Amino acid sequence: MDRIVRAWVDGWVLSRGAAPPVVEPWGCTIDMGVDGHVARHVFGTLDDDVEEAAVRKVAGAVTGAGVWLKVFRDPAVAGGWLGAGWWIDPEPGYLMTLPPTRALDEPAVPDGYRQRTWSRGGVIRTMLAAPDGSWAARGQLAPTGATAVVDQVETSPRHRRKGLGTVVMRTLQRAAAEQGAETCVLAGTPAGRGLYESLGWTVTAPLTSAKFTG
């Protein structure tokens, strides 16, 4: 399995509290055990190294609704390998990495907002509350040694364009450096790609996400 894919899998499992990954010849299977996300099959290679036959075989063996596939290939290509019953996210995802970096200065929180950062179960979380006390932004980091995975970065639609995403990301990147991580990994969306690239992240591979609906 590609080392960046494996780093993302290990961090995602820690971040979400999922079952340990079961290694397969083509990648791995992760049991999540919740409605709509029973399990996910993650393919372990990138771009042209992804084997169409393997994707078709794994997808064809899925019979239960709520099983996901994660394939590091453009959806315009990988989507054509999936049969009936598969919902394919129309937006491409991105496997992104941040090279080794020093610890950043503590980010400045916009006036009126309150930030809190804490660690529990090995996962570092940060959140921002709005001036009225409502939720504004959040994100979390799962350090796994030499790598750390950024996960579940969100900003409330009411509080976008105020720099809160930057505060969250800089906080998590700073925490990763303090934990001794050499590389950070995340799975991003088109909406977040611009922010991540402005902070030094680069795209390693495209990502197709698909869910079996039965």
Rank of each mutant, 00 (worst) to 15 (best):
A146M: 06
D111G: 12
A78V: 04
F72M: 07
T29M: 14
L104I: 05
A59Y: 14
T63Q: 14
Q152D: 15
L98N: 04
A130H: 03
T117R: 08
L141E: 12
P92A: 05
A53Q: 14
I124L: 05
T126P: 00
T101S: 15
V38H: 06
A136L: 09
R40K: 15
G17T: 04
P99D: 14
P92E: 04
E91W: 10
V149Y: 05
G80H: 13
D74T: 05
V149H: 13
G60P: 10
W68F: 12
R16G: 12
E51C: 13
P25C: 04
P90K: 00
Y94G: 02
P100G: 15
V50Y: 01
G112S: 05
L141H: 07
T63L: 10
Q140Y: 14
V71C: 06
R120W: 06
A53S: 15
R120P: 00
T147L: 02
G27Q: 08
I30D: 04
V67K: 08
P21S: 05
M127E: 09
G145R: 11
P20N: 00
L104S: 14
P25H: 03
A103V: 13
V23I: 09
Q152R: 11
R16V: 09
G85P: 00
A19P: 00
D49G: 11
G27D: 05
Q115I: 02
I124K: 01
D111L: 11
G33Y: 08
Q115R: 15
R116I: 13
R120V: 10
A137V: 11
A59D: 10
I88S: 03
R102H: 15
T117N: 00
A18K: 01
M96K: 01
D105W: 03
G93R: 05
P20I: 01
K70H: 15
P99Y: 06
V62D: 01
A130D: 03
P100V: 13
D31F: 11
V34G: 03
P99H: 06
W81T: 09
R114W: 02
W81I: 11
G64H: 09
P107L: 11
V42T: 13
R114H: 12
D48S: 11
L82Q: 05
V153R: 04
A76R: 07
W68G: 01
A84D: 12
V58C: 15
G112Q: 12
G27A: 08
V67W: 03
G139E: 00
V109T: 04
A103E: 14
A61T: 13
P143W: 07
W86V: 00
A65D: 08
G80C: 09
T45R: 14
T97I: 10
S119V: 11
V71R: 07
S119W: 00
P25E: 05
P99L: 03
V34E: 14
R40L: 14
G44L: 12
A130V: 04
P75L: 07
G112Y: 11
C28V: 13
P90Y: 10
G66W: 01
I88N: 03
V67T: 10
V23D: 15
R125N: 06
D48M: 00
W118G: 04
F43T: 09
P99C: 01
A148Y: 02
